[in-house]
Design a binder for these strands. Structure first.
Length: 261
DNA sequence: ATGGCGGGTCTAACCCGA
């Protein structure tokens, strides 16, 4: 079973690339982030014609997540329960960043973790609070679903080796210690970074800035991840980053990550 | 060098991403 994650930075613009990629890479499950589309505009018919069911949670302009799959999913859930609008919690979240679904015995949780903007911004505090809520929710979900995959755009480069130039990034979001602590807290739940279960080529990234010819110069970060629970780790066969879509005309700034279970 | 690019939409002396 292959599952993939791809931040497409607008599904409206990237739909042809998604369809081409699925034709060449017929994964069981593809999780998308930053669809930037309201649910009424989601291209479910085009995807179904290509052999993929879809479930989605979108909004205008920002965020938006979707799960595309060969088989129809069950138990589809949107958002982190404690943060859902109307939950009565102090920290309610209107942003569409989470969708979860079950395929066979595997629970798939697709996340678009907040960016944080800069470490002195309110958005950074939002990111840290969001990560705490994600952690507390997953701790319970792992009891219910021991075979769980947490994948998506984490907006965290977990270690310096996931950064093209660690010295240049000191003091920035995506690499700060509190963010890396939050990533390690997810790992402490038994979630393994599937990419690091295998030998990998150094300086392999999943995102490159549109500016400064960053892709050509390989000035990137590894911020898109596929974490798998302890129960799934023994059946994990590979985890790879597919750089090919980043080379296309009018690409997303992210490229897909694929795990085989 | 704080912008460079490329999405979005209130099409801008705009906002946001990473």
């Amino acid at each position: 079973m292959k599952l993939a994650t791809w931040n497409v930075n607008s599904l409206k613009v990237r739909l042809p690339q998604v369809l081409d990629w699925l034709a060449a890479n017929p994964v069981e499950v593809l999780c998308l982030q930053e669809t930037k589309q309201q649910d009424a505009d989601f291209p479910k018919d085009e995807l179904l014609a290509a052999g993929y069911h879809s479930v989605f949670s979108g909004q205008k302009t920002y965020n938006g997540v979707a799960i595309l799959s060969r088989e129809e999913p069950s138990d589809v859930q949107m958002g982190i329960p404690a943060l859902r609008p109307g939950s009565g919690q102090a920290f309610e979240d209107e942003q569409k960043r989470v969708i979860a679904a079950t395929f066979g015995d595997v629970r798939v949780v697709n996340v678009y973790i907040p960016n944080g903007q800069s470490i002195d911004s309110d958005k950074y505090q939002y990111k840290l609070g969001w990560l705490k809520a994600l952690h507390d929710w997953l701790k319970q979900e792992l009891v219910r679903y021991p075979k769980l995959v947490l994948l998506g755009d984490y907006n965290i480069a977990p270690e310096d080796r996931d950064v093209h130039d660690p010295a240049a990034w000191v003091g920035n979001v995506l690499v700060s210690e509190p963010e890396r602590d939050a990533f390690r807290a997810l790992q402490a739940l038994g979630l393994k970074d599937s990419y690091r279960l295998f030998e990998q080529t150094e300086k392999t990234f999943s995102w490159w800035d549109y500016r400064m010819m960053a892709f050509r110069r390989n000035m990137g970060l590894r911020i898109d991840h596929i974490l798998i629970s302890e129960a799934l780790a023994p059946r994990c066969k590979s985890c790879v980053i597919d750089k090919a879509p980043r080379k296309l005309e009018r690409p997303s700034d992210h490229t897909p990550v694929i795990v085989e279970l």
